Amino acid sequence: MNLLLLFLAAMVVRATSQPTNPLPLPYDYYFVVFQWAKSVCNTGMYQCIKPTFPAFTLHGLWPQRYRFPPLDDCRLNLGYKKFINASNEDFWGRQYEKHGSCVDPFYSNQLTYFVTALRVATSTDLYGILQAAGILCGNPTTVGAVRTAIHASTGFWPTVQCNWSITGTLQLFQIYLCFNKITNVPMDCPRVQKGCIDPIDYPQP
């Protein structure tokens, strides 16, 4: 919670100084993406400097189209890199550069963009949802089980993404929740999974 408060405080200061995108591209809906931290740290690509904990962390809010190509990096030479060079803010800055820069005028500034993502993050306990459904970290599971558990709790179908650990194990990596871009209400995600073949690992923190 302290991290969320820090995040909001930083964004309040910077939202007024960052330019809005004068040429936004159309998109159809948006993802709020959560990642399982252990599945980031055990791939060999990144090294986590702190122990991971049993929770899905917020990765970002990503505007999406129903058809390819993917929608990202809409900066068009705008000054989105004016962020303090600290680890958290650097990550938040990259998220806005790549994804937030693509939202339409519905998001009038960075603060609106980040608060929308945080609203979902603070009201959604994916770890608790899976645990209540008997899906426990350290045990193998399936895409269908994960999606069914989340659908039973929220009423909407998510997208499940997998990746490979450094030991060659296919594992639960990210969960995408989909939302209507105008009303912000949840909706079924149009895609079932990304890169998954059952069974998948759900690694211990």
Rank of each mutant, 00 (worst) to 15 (best):
T16P: 00
P22D: 04
D28I: 08
F173M: 00
A117E: 03
S101G: 14
A132M: 02
V13G: 00
V40M: 11
S153V: 04
L58Y: 03
F53T: 12
W92C: 04
F34N: 03
S108I: 10
R119A: 10
F34L: 07
I129M: 07
G60Q: 01
P24E: 06
F173K: 01
F31M: 00
I166P: 00
G134R: 06
V120A: 02
S87E: 14
Y29W: 15
M1G: 12
W36M: 02
P22A: 02
C189Y: 02
A55S: 13
K81A: 12
P186L: 10
V12K: 08
Q193N: 14
G79P: 06
K81C: 12
R119E: 14
I49P: 06
R75W: 14
N77S: 12
P63K: 04
C196R: 01
D198R: 08
I84Q: 01
P69W: 04
T112E: 15
F7H: 15
G100E: 03
A121I: 00
F7K: 11
T169N: 14
S39N: 05
L5K: 09
T148P: 00
L76W: 13
C137L: 10
A55L: 09
A10C: 12
S123N: 10
C102E: 07
D73S: 14
Q171V: 00
A9K: 13
G60W: 00
P158Q: 11
F114P: 05
D188I: 03
Y96V: 07
D28M: 04
L130F: 07
W36E: 01
G144A: 13
F83K: 01
A10L: 13
V120R: 03
T142A: 01
G195Q: 08
G138A: 04
L177H: 00
P190A: 08
L8T: 14
W164D: 08
R14M: 11
V32H: 01
D104K: 07
F7D: 15
V146M: 06
I182H: 12
N2I: 06
Y80W: 07
T167M: 13
Q18R: 08
V12M: 06
H99Y: 11
F91L: 14
T167L: 14
H99I: 05
W62H: 03
G155Y: 02
M187R: 11
W164G: 00
D125Q: 00
E89Q: 13
A9H: 10
P51S: 09
L25E: 15
V33A: 09
C41I: 04
A86V: 07
E89V: 11
Q161K: 15
Q171D: 02
D201Y: 07
F31R: 05
C41V: 06
V103S: 05
I49Q: 14
M187E: 13
P24L: 03
N139S: 12
L76A: 15
W157H: 09
D188R: 04
P140K: 07
G144S: 14
T20I: 10
N109H: 13
T52V: 09
D198S: 08
L3F: 09
G79V: 02
G79Y: 06
Q47K: 10
I49A: 13
I175E: 03
A145F: 03
S123D: 07
T122M: 12
C102D: 09
F7Q: 14
G44D: 04
K81G: 10
K181T: 01
Y202T: 05
Q110N: 11
L78A: 06
T16R: 15
W164P: 00
S108T: 13
T159K: 09
L111Q: 06
L111E: 10
P158Y: 08
